[in-house]
Design a protein around this nucleic acid. Structure first.
Lengths: 244, 244
DNA sequence: CGATCAGTTGAGAATGGTCAAATTCGGTGG
DNA sequence: CCACCGAATTTGACCATTCTCAACTGATCG
């Protein structure tokens, strides 16, 4: 009976904001300009201007900033249903770099697409705003992670967050998920050295909490892991602003 | 000849987006419900619902999250011209706590105020969106700070950022600014212990770069400090999206 | 079959944390 | 004006977490 195909973005938004068939159709029109990028491709450079935004349909990406000394800080990992570089169409230039971690399928969106949708489908517009506020809430949680948690806690928190997010778009389940990240990626996201990431993963594995091996994360003791990380989904579970 | 008084917010926005007299008047109407809070007052609690947003007119505030173990992570310090809790009117509840660091004067704004302005003064709306994107860019830079910089670098970066932001709203100058933060506040923002903050401040003072004593920050060697911190104002200097 | 890249492990060093104790400083009451 | 109080700052000694360097393994790929 559905008029439109269900994309990861649709699934994510629908979990929090009730969308009409008309909304869903407008949303489907976002996926007009489909593009693919190979793993490792840099889709956007810090400082680059005239950048466009994307909706990730398939695969993983990450946003990051480089430091003069060669270090890098991963700001977030993006999974299907996430926006890439939404902020770069408001600013004249992007403040982050963006890299495809796997082969990627994404829909390119321009500012007029978004603004047009804001005019035609106000509830959808609010949903998009909601999604971007949720991204911001995640960034806040990442700040807490880097500032006030130990290495093991940080790792636990990151894996739990990724698991919860993937669940929401229908990938992976309660027991785990498959994960294309290397230990270097984890290190750059958590502000650790890759070597220490390795030790932390071993500790979590030996303690029987999570196993991350061969591209697969398995939660062995979810409850204990959540309590270790102080993981509270509240920051991701906010209800949308317009449910009526 | 000016029709409207110049507020810190006006000064900030005007530096990046050309606003018409009509825009300025709409902006001035934001400052309708003026309220004051004493230093130390908690203006918003994490999880609190029905929170309203504020525009800070006078004084300092900070947003933070508490951890189960009693630790706290300061997300940002707010100075005159900044929005407080803008996200909390989109979500049903706030994801942060908000505390007045000094006696404060602020204007309370409700969602309809903002949305009304969006309808009547699109350029002003864009300016507000721009301001909130800028806040997000600052948060990204704070992530880099916590994840990839040493204690001294972090401190240098924070003080430089505060200096630059205060400059923009006409408080303080090239040589320094007066600052109500305690070393505990700095510690909670930088992910350090208060004791180590003290050591770091001493080192910066003895190296002749910055002096922070008796509530006043003095830049003794701005150039050297900026190069130490890897401080690049690009993330705060983005031009607004609508200059035409 | 090298070459490369991700992962693994160990040893020593460094950065920053914890605990405990002064010291300074701005009030406040006598 | 002075004694005193509490909060913020300062210092020292010691400890823990995490980093760096260096080496080795194992898989994958041309």
């Amino acid at each position: 009976m559905k008029l439109v195909e269900s994309s990861p973005l649709t699934r994510k938004l629908s979990a929090f904001v009730a969308l009409s068939e008309a909304d869903l159709e407008t949303l489907a029109r976002f996926h007009h300009r489909r593009r693919t990028f190979p793993a490792g491709h840099t889709m956007m450079h810090e400082g680059q201007s005239n950048a466009s935004a994307f909706i990730l349909a398939e695969g993983w990406a990450c946003s990051y900033k480089m430091l003069p000394d060669g270090g890098r800080q991963v700001i977030n990992f993006q999974i299907p249903g996430d926006f890439l570089g939404l902020r770069s169409i408001l600013f004249r230039s992007s403040d982050l770099s963006l890299e495809a971690l796997t082969d990627i399928e994404a829909s390119e969106v321009f500012a007029p697409d978004i603004l047009g949708a804001f005019a035609r489908a106000p509830r959808l517009a609010t949903a998009v705003l909601w999604a971007s506020s949720r991204d911001e809430a995640m960034m806040v949680e990442h700040l807490v992670n880097l500032g006030r948690r130990s290495a093991v806690e940080r790792m636990a928190h990151l894996l739990l967050e990724l698991g919860a997010r993937l669940n929401l778009v229908g990938v992976g389940d309660r027991t785990g998920f498959s994960c294309p990240l290397t230990q270097y990626h984890l290190a750059d996201a958590l502000g650790l050295s890759a070597i220490h990431v390795n030790r932390v993963l071993r500790q979590l594995r030996e303690d029987g909490m999570v196993t991350f091996q061969k591209g697969r994360v398995v939660f062995n003791d979810l409850a204990r892991l959540q309590s270790l990380a102080g993981f509270d989904t509240a920051y991701m579970d906010h209800e949308g602003p317009l449910l009526r």
